[in-house]
Amino acid sequence: MRSPESMRSRRSGAGGGEALQVPARGRAGLRIRRGLWGPGGTGDRGGAGDRGGAGDRGGARVWMRLRRRPAFWIGCGLLVLLVLVAIVPGLFTGRDPAYCDLALSRRGPGDDAVFGYNLQGCDVYARTIYGARASVLVGVFATAAVVVIGGLIGTAAGYAGGRLDSVLSRLTDVFFGIPLLLGALVALVAFPSDESTPGWQTTAKVVLALGILGWTTVARIARAAAIQVRHIDYVVVAQAMGGGHLQVIRRHVLPSVLPPVLAWSTMAVGGFIAVEATLSFIGIGLQPPVISWGVEISEAQAYLRQSPHMLIVPSAALSLTVFAFMTLGETLRAALDPRTPHLNDHVK
């Protein structure tokens, strides 16, 4: 309990007390320390003089921390595999996922198909392999959209402060009030897709719905980080030396905003993939002809007792994917901010 590490971070007691007095929800959970590189690190002192090269040294330190964690390597390995499967599914299976033979419907694992056949008599393994692409696409694009929208709004609110901050924060609260899954459900009901809709349109709708509704957490993280650095000497000096706001944000504020946002968004990719699968499971996310794990699982649900293989394989792929992103994001976040292992409200 009294390790050197914990003694060094005694100041946290005061920090924790301060946070307790902020009753607004979300604040306490989103405290992001200015000292990104941990206690005693260069960023901790945060003076203008420290700035030169702090990023490099900090980056090396984070890399050192990451390198020692097995979870990081496990996450990376899974991620590389997943991306490979998404880009060139043909490498992993010689079968055509769209070739189905009704005579083989729900046949269990056997010699010619390792994981058996689904209801339509398609090869479960091939469909799971080819289903990775839709999931990865949705996860990555939704996260990118969320980072852009939430990052802009949050950084602007935190940097500008005052009236703009209160307007943008209220806007964030409004969107935060809509649970992501329910909001996406509503948005997708308003713009329904069916089997005649081209695949890319169906996917784009899901991405848009998630992007427009899911940005609130990024905005809060970015806002908190921007507020932390707004009044620090090097930012004030940059402004005083005549730097335009855009330039000051780009060169001096963004370097503090990006690391926590990136750590969160790595986890978020997994979260969005899970939400997409859930929407597809309910029947309003991705639709055939798009091959997706959610649709496969939804189809297999009714035959859970007789043909569990139809459910287990896509479910395992989905869970493993979410696990990879969560682990990676979690280790990244822990490496960036080693003292407080807060696990934030990821994607709702």
Binding site: R27, A28, G29, F176, P179, L180, L181, L182, K348
Partner: peptide
């Protein structure tokens, strides 16, 4: 704070 903020996910999860 976390439990309350996450209640939205719980409500949405009840759909599933």
């Amino acid at each position: 704070t976390l439990a309350a903020a996450d209640f939205g996910a719980l409500v949405a999860g009840s759909v599933v």
